[in-house]
Structure formats: structure tokens, C-alpha cells
Amino acid sequence: MRVLVATQLAGSYSKIAGEIIPRLVSSNIDVMVVSIPPSILPLQWKVGDLCYCVKGKNVKFVFNIRRREDLQAITAFHPDAVLNIYEPTMLVLKDILFAASTLKDTAVREGAPFIGYFTLDHYPLRGRGQAQILDDLFDFVIPVTSYEGRLARERLSRCKVVEPVPYGVDHAVYNPSAWSASPMGRKLKEVREFKVIYVGTGSPYKDPGRWYRVVGEVARRGVPVRGVLKLSTAVGTSSMPADVSVLEDVNQLAGKIEYVLGWLDDRELAALVSACDVFLTLSTAEGFCLAALEAQACGLPVVLPDIPQLREVYGDSALYVKREGTWYSGLGGFYVTSSVEDAVEKLVLLYEDAGFRKEMQARSLANAKRYSWDESTAKIIKILESVAGRR
């Protein structure tokens, strides 16, 4: 079977694709990767998220679908299926939609199904016109949770919604002792403060300002806290967010936040996470929160926003922050905001009650064991085999 995988070259979706693609290749599936959005500088990604994950594998790359020779290479590949793994909200951008539509034309000519595998939270399905784009473009969608699968079936009419396939975790990399394999991990482990980590972007919908407020309030409660921020950045960059100093000053956190910038491979990231004490995110919207699952595999308790998808994935293995309200994005998306006071109480409880902290650590490890990239990829392969040649 020949599978064309369209994905981003950096960010969380490239990491997901980077877990799936080598496993497809190991299952004797011929894979070609095409960049969405098109990249005019392929060399800058040679040590990046996706290329790091698939190096040494027999994978063909197409970086710029606008180039005639790249488009000819895709046509000559004769895919049996096209698997799209990228942020679906990008499809509202004209250039991205054009690239995806070009791939869809290739799929139609080859009789190959056009399949999406991504989170389908409220925004892609309820955003103005976005559900229609998904319905028109994709033949099949693989949701990540049952909740999003039900939501997709309500919103999509032509596109078929198959059974959900959750994301996974590589337990050989993400585990409680990962910190010992890295100088960075060993150094952070020696810090005797209560280390609260967040891994992700600094996008407004992640509500980083509220994260700073919570850590600041925990410090004012007398907890010797240290915030650890691993902010996702493009490969080769290490820029500090412009508003960091303001957030530190307002919340009296000068000298209490450790920033880890630049790109880390999985082993370095696992070392960083496993050296901390608790994972905290107050994001206003999440489809799965893979970073929290990786933190659980490292044995960390996780404190999360109270969102239906996360309740499904994490069950009673996580602590959920009470909703403080919702706000409307203006584009059809409703977002949850979390209570600062409740988040503070949960972090203080984890710090002060060692028995409760150990219980949540055990729950985290047990929940993480339910998820595996090997199992998830096997499910995706079964779906690909069942729909290949069907549209």
C-alpha cells in the first residue's frame, strides 16, 4: 500500500506524524510526505521535528507542492490513500486550502480516499464555514476522541466519521527515570523547589497569563515554587515571548520562572518533564493535550482545564480546574476559562499532601499505560486498508 502523508514540518502535528510515519514504514507501507503548508526552505528542517523522527527511514519528501516537479512526483507516486495530519483550522487560509485542494485532486484522479486525522474541537467544527470546508474536502475523518466523533457526526454530512483513534506515547522515552539520561534533567532534578511545568505554545488560547497568575498565587501562599516553561518554537529559533517580563513583574515571579527555549528532541523533552513535580495547563481549548499524557508517562500529576475531551482521555487520573466561564471567539468557537483560585488550591494540595501526590502519580502512570503509538498506528493502518480505493 502507498500512503501520501500531508503534514506540518514543525509543531505538535509534525510530532504526531513523526510517530506514525516510521511505524507505517515498519509495516511495509510505502510513504511519501508532503509539507502543509508548502515549504520553500526544506533544508532548515533537516534537524527538525518531523525529519528527526523519520531520519533513517525510507521516506520520500515533497516540500513545495507549488513546484511542477514536486507535483509530478506526487502524481507518479500513485497513492492508495492520502492521510492528512495537520491543524485543520489552517484550512481557512487561502494558500493552505489551495494546497490541500491540489492534493485532493490528485487523490480523486487516483481513486484514493482523502482522510483527516486531527483533533476536532469546537473551533474547527463550529467556526464560521469551517465545518463546510471539512465536509467538502475530506472523504473520511478519524477523530481522536469519541466526544469529537459525536460532534463531527452532527456537523458533517458527506464526510464519513470513523471510529476514534487516540494519540499515544512512547513509554521507552517518556518514563519517570528519563531525567537521569540528560544533564539538563539531572540539573533540574536537583532543584528542591516545587516545579510546575507547562509544555506548549504561548498562543493566546493557551491562556499563558492565567498560568503566570496561578504560579504567582501559589508562591504567595508560601510554597517554594518554580515555574518551568517549555515553549514550542520553530527549529533553529529561541525567541523569548515579548510579554514575559510584564507577566513576571505583575505576578511577582522575578527569578522564579525557568524558560526552556529552542527545539528539543523527545529524549531531552522527557528528561525535562520527568524532572518536574506537576504539569499544569489552563488552556481554553484542547482536543487531547498530548503534552499532559507524556507528563503522566513520566509520573507527574496533571492539572487540566475541565473540558469534555480531556475528561474522556484522562478520567480520574487528572485534577480538573473549575470553569470560571466561557468566552466567544467571534468565529464560532466557545472557549472555557479556568478558575485561578481553584487551580491554586489544587497545586497547594499536591505540594502539602505527599500521600495525595503519590496517589495522583500512580493514577497518571496507570492512565498513560492505556495509550501507545504502536496500538494507535495499528488502528490507523486497519482503517487505511479498509477504505483504500473507496471514496
Rank of each mutant, 00 (worst) to 15 (best):
V228D: 02
V199M: 07
V225G: 00
K230Y: 14
P176W: 11
S180D: 01
G209K: 08
S182C: 05
P208E: 08
V173C: 15
F194Q: 02
V169I: 15
G200K: 11
L229P: 02
V173Y: 15
P224E: 07
V225T: 01
S182H: 05
K195F: 02
G236R: 04
P224D: 10
N175Q: 10
P224G: 01
S203D: 15
A242M: 13
K195V: 05
L231I: 09
Y205A: 06
V173T: 14
E163P: 11
R226M: 09
R192Q: 09
V165H: 11
L229T: 01
V228Y: 00
S182E: 03
Y167F: 15
I197W: 05
K195I: 02
P164E: 12
K160R: 12
P164K: 02
S203L: 07
R210W: 05
V235T: 10
Y167E: 08
G227I: 00
V165I: 13
Y174G: 04
V228I: 14
W179Y: 15
V235Y: 07
D170W: 13
T201H: 07
E217G: 00
F194V: 02
V173D: 15
P204Y: 08
K230T: 03
S203Y: 08
P204A: 04
G236L: 06
A181N: 11
E190K: 13
R220Y: 12
E190D: 13
H171T: 12
L231F: 13
A219H: 12
W211D: 12
K206D: 11
S180V: 01
T237I: 10
A178T: 00
V225N: 00
V173M: 14
V169L: 12
N175A: 03
V235M: 14
H171L: 15
T237R: 11
V191N: 13
S180W: 00
P166R: 07
Y198P: 03
G222Q: 00
T201D: 04
A178M: 13
P204Q: 07
V235F: 12
Y205T: 12
M240S: 06
V191Q: 14
V235P: 09
T233I: 04
W211G: 02
E193R: 09
E163D: 07
A172V: 01
S232V: 08
M184F: 11
L188E: 13
P204S: 07
R226K: 14
P176V: 06
G227H: 03
E190F: 09
A242F: 14
R221C: 03
G200A: 04
V215P: 10
V223Y: 02
V165K: 07
Y212F: 08
Y167L: 14
Y198L: 04
V215C: 06
V218Y: 04
K187G: 05
E217Y: 10
G227V: 01
G209Q: 06
P166T: 02
V225I: 04
G236Y: 08
S180M: 09
V165P: 14
V199I: 14
V196K: 03
P166W: 11
R213T: 06
L188G: 09
A172H: 10
F194R: 08
R226Y: 15
P208Q: 10
S239E: 13
W179M: 00
